[in-house]
Structure formats: C-alpha cells, structure tokens
Amino acid sequence: MFEPILANYTRDGDDWKVEVTGGDEVLTATAPGLIAARDQADQLAERIAPGDQPRTVVHTLDGDALGFTTAYLTARLATPPPGPPPATDEATTA
C-alpha cells in the first residue's frame, strides 16, 4: 500500500523545526525560516525515499495542512521590509 511522506513544521524560537516521517523512519532539521525549512523537508524526503518519483509529501504546520499552505504562501509572497534607497552615481545622473 502507498504511504505518503509527512513533513510537519513547528516554530522553534525564531527558527522552524521540520520532522519528516516516512514508514518507520523519522528525520528532523531546523532552519532559519519557513522557506528554508521547506527546502530541508525536500532533502529529508529524498533521504527517506531516494529516487521515488513521483514522491508524495504532505506538509503540515502543527498537523494542519491548510495552516502550512497559508503560512508558506504568506512567506513566499511577502515583500521584503523597506531598506535604504539605492545609491545613485552622481556622474550618471548629471
């Protein structure tokens, strides 16, 4: 019987912890943001099921797949905080 791999994400202070489970194998990693944690989950899933294509991974945030999708899309689509304006070269603007 086919069994999907489960990737569950939880906050760990300022970081994210991801636990990837497939069959009897459980691997964990910590990353500085949700996007980086998602990348870690892909790498761990590859270690659990090397070469399996297609590979089904269910991503959850504290057990909630919709919660993960919402948080991940928010992180992906968020605009970076405003920084200082780019420096201009006075020689090219004159």
Rank of each mutant, 00 (worst) to 15 (best):
L73F: 13
R38A: 14
L34G: 03
V26F: 10
T93Y: 12
A41M: 02
G22H: 01
A45H: 01
A36S: 14
G13I: 05
L61E: 00
P82W: 08
D24M: 10
A78I: 12
A41D: 02
F68H: 01
A31V: 00
T30G: 12
A37N: 04
V57H: 03
F2A: 14
P84C: 09
I5D: 03
A75Q: 07
A7I: 01
T92V: 14
E46V: 04
V57A: 02
L66G: 15
D14R: 13
A49P: 05
G67C: 03
A71Q: 06
V18W: 01
V18I: 02
L77D: 15
F2K: 12
I5N: 03
D12K: 11
H59G: 05
A87M: 13
T69I: 08
G63H: 03
A94G: 14
G51C: 01
Y72L: 08
P85Q: 07
Q43S: 09
P82V: 07
L77G: 15
V26P: 05
D52R: 10
D12M: 11
H59Q: 09
A37W: 01
T70K: 13
R38L: 11
L44C: 04
M1D: 15
P4W: 09
T92C: 10
A87F: 14
T79N: 14
L44N: 01
G13Q: 09
